[in-house]
């Protein structure tokens, strides 16, 4: 048994050293937050296609639930399997530190994809995020402003109270509203949290409408929240008076766009995150890409990509806006 484990360690080490020259294909695994989450279907698609074109082996695994520790046995198992690259959408900013450290000790390249371990960055090699999260708040305020004529009361319906990404965007929204005179006539009256559950998001949305009868717009920067908010507005026939927008999946929002409940919303391409992650990982392991801040590399279809401070890599510069004109062009 001991011999076996040494053997595995050896193969992994060899694969690292030899890189692309090895006959053995690169083994890449992506660990999602949980199974049954439609958002990850699209990311996985990007991983799969890139692995097909570059000749890597790819597997997607995910625990049944998204609680903080559920990913740990899966990471341990992948270390044991001797994969070369672990991509992960972390369920916790710090509970995975130990096991990620032991993965990197074995020479595995650890990438956080579509979410970072903020505050524990030293436990991963790089992070791949869809856009620079600093601009999300600004763009979302601009979008809701354009929908309500830059005047009136707005509210935010977020995910959980501690969701790190959403909180970063909310800070951005507050700063934009305060600093830019363009938005001086818009007033943020409330920020509420639907915990990414349809039931809670719906009751929070109903409470917003009851508490703020003059509400003009709602930003829901979470896929569950925006769908729940849109459904409330749709069933109460308020689409004209209260504009719902935020970040949503085209597949979940198509009906609301078509019947006019929602005029426009934003997101990025999750597919490209997977596509970029594979190209980056392959390049780093065969030595053609240096994982250094300020470095650049080429990715087919995406052009030149820069490695930003904190080894953070973005797949696109701006958010994509979806509306009645372009919604049918997207199939995720």
């Amino acid at each position: 048994m001991l011999r076996k484990s040494t053997l595995i360690g050896l193969t992994a080490g060899l694969a690292m050293l030899a890189g692309a020259a090895m006959a053995e294909p690169l083994k890449i695994v992506y660990i999602g937050k949980n199974t049954g989450n439609p958002y990850f279907d699209s990311i996985t698609g990007g991983f799969e296609d890139a692995c097909k074109s570059l000749g890597c082996e790819f597997e997607f695994v995910a625990p049944a639930t998204a609680e903080a520790t559920s990913q740990i046995p899966f990471i341990e198992a992948q270390i044991q399997r001797g994969v070369n690259v672990i991509g992960i959408a972390p369920n916790s900013p710090d509970a995975l530190n130990e096991v990620l450290a032991s993965a990197r000790e074995k020479g595995i390249l650890v990438l956080t994809v579509n979410g970072d371990i903020t505050g524990s960055e030293q436990y991963r090699d790089a992070t791949i995020l869809p856009v620079n999260f600093d601009i999300v708040g600004r763009d979302q305020v601009e979008l809701v402003g354009s929908l309500i004529g830059y005047e009136g009361e707005i509210a935010i319906l977020s995910a959980t109270t501690e969701a790190p990404d959403q909180n970063k965007w909310i800070v951005g929204m507050n700063e934009t509203l305060k600093s830019d005179p363009k938005y001086a006539k818009m007033k943020l009256v409330a920020t509420v949290y639907g915990d990414d559950q349809p039931e809670k998001s719906t009751t929070e949305m109903e409470a917003l409408l009851a508490n703020f009868p003059n509400l003009k717009g709602v930003i829901a920067p979470t896929t569950v929240g925006i769908a729940a908010a849109a459904q409330v507005v749709q069933s109460r026939g308020l689409a004209e008076t209260v504009k719902v927008t935020g970040l949503g999946l085209p597949s979940e929002m198509r009906d609301f766009i078509k019947d006019g409940t929602v005029t426009a919303f934003q997101l990025w391409s999750p597919y490209n995150e997977g596509w970029l992650a594979v190209h980056f990982a392959k390049g780093v392991l065969d030595g053609s890409i240096k994982n250094e801040v300020g470095g650049t590399f080429e990715v087919p279809n995406l052009g030149t990509i820069t490695i930003n401070p904190n080894n953070s890599i973005n797949t696109q510069a701006e958010l994509t806006t979806f509306d009645a004109k372009n919604i049918d062009e997207f199939n995720f």
Binding site: T65, E67, A68, T69, S92, D94, A95, N97, E98
Partner: peptide, 16 residues
Amino acid sequence: MTASRLGSVRYDLGLG
């Protein structure tokens, strides 16, 4: 023990 193993604690520790 779980807290010591994980290095951090969240309300969903040991869920299910």
